[in-house]
Amino acid sequence: MAPPVVIALHYQNDVLHPDGKIRVGLGAEDAARTALLDAAGRLMAGARARGWPIIHVRVAFRPDYADLQQNAPILRNVAAIGAVQEGSWGAEFFSELAPLSSRNEFSVTHQRINAFYGSPLEQLVRQFHSNRLLIAGVATHSVVESTVRHAVDCGFEVTVAADACACADAGAHRASLASMALIARICEVNQALEEAA
């Protein structure tokens, strides 16, 4: 059986760094932020140790946002706060979780809520001939859930590493995980690594 493909969503400076423009409500000294970074770090380390492919996904737009279709509040807010502009520090991957120079690691940029839509993500995933995805990222109730639903509709078997996901509202995070449990396996990083091996 082919190993799972890890999809790491939006581990970017504007999302995770204390000086980022989005920050999903996680302050520099917030215990939830520390827990998220620890879990995501364990996910990356575990996947690398097992030789699993990792696809790092980021969202980025032109500095003038001419390529941002602002048809939803979350997308209008990106432009309003000046976040994730291509070429900016904020759009770059957060250093602790950034891709390594490895034949098993890839990066994809997307511009919608669902990371598959309008991006090369599905084509890249399929080259590994695996029907299993291990997905984590920020924010749980937006890019993670949208991407998970699309993946399931494409026929992939999905596991969500819950402790490597977060959003500004803890209640929304829990509700999103509960909703995704109807279509994906929800578990902690350590369990996901052990079970998928």
Rank of each mutant, 00 (worst) to 15 (best):
A8W: 01
A115D: 12
A115V: 03
E86F: 03
A31Q: 13
P63K: 12
L124D: 03
L124I: 07
S102R: 13
L121P: 02
V24H: 02
V84Y: 11
A66C: 13
G82F: 07
R132D: 09
I55S: 07
P99G: 09
S102N: 14
Y65C: 09
A72F: 10
S107M: 09
N77G: 06
V125I: 15
G25I: 08
V59R: 15
P120W: 14
T34W: 10
Q111P: 04
G51T: 03
A28C: 03
D67H: 01
L36E: 06
A115M: 11
V138L: 08
F116P: 05
R103H: 14
R103C: 13
V84M: 10
I74Q: 07
F106R: 06
R58V: 06
G25S: 00
M44D: 11
L134I: 10
R103I: 11
N104F: 14
A98W: 04
G82N: 07
E122D: 15
L124V: 14
H17S: 09
P99T: 07
I55C: 03
E105T: 08
D30C: 05
A8I: 09
Y117K: 09
A60E: 15
A80I: 00
A136S: 07
I113K: 08
R48Q: 02
S102D: 14
L68D: 06
D14Y: 08
P63N: 15
R33F: 08
K21P: 10
F93N: 00
V78L: 14
Q127G: 06
A98G: 09
R42W: 04
R42T: 04
R33D: 04
S130I: 07
A40H: 12
L75S: 04
A32L: 07
P63W: 10
L36F: 15
G27V: 02
F93M: 11
E86Q: 15
V59W: 06
R48V: 00
V59Q: 15
H56F: 12
N71Q: 07
R126I: 12
L37V: 15
L68H: 07
P63H: 13
R42C: 13
S102H: 05
A39W: 08
E96P: 02
L9S: 02
A45T: 12
G90Q: 02
I81W: 05
R76K: 14
R103D: 15
R112N: 12
F128W: 11
A91C: 09
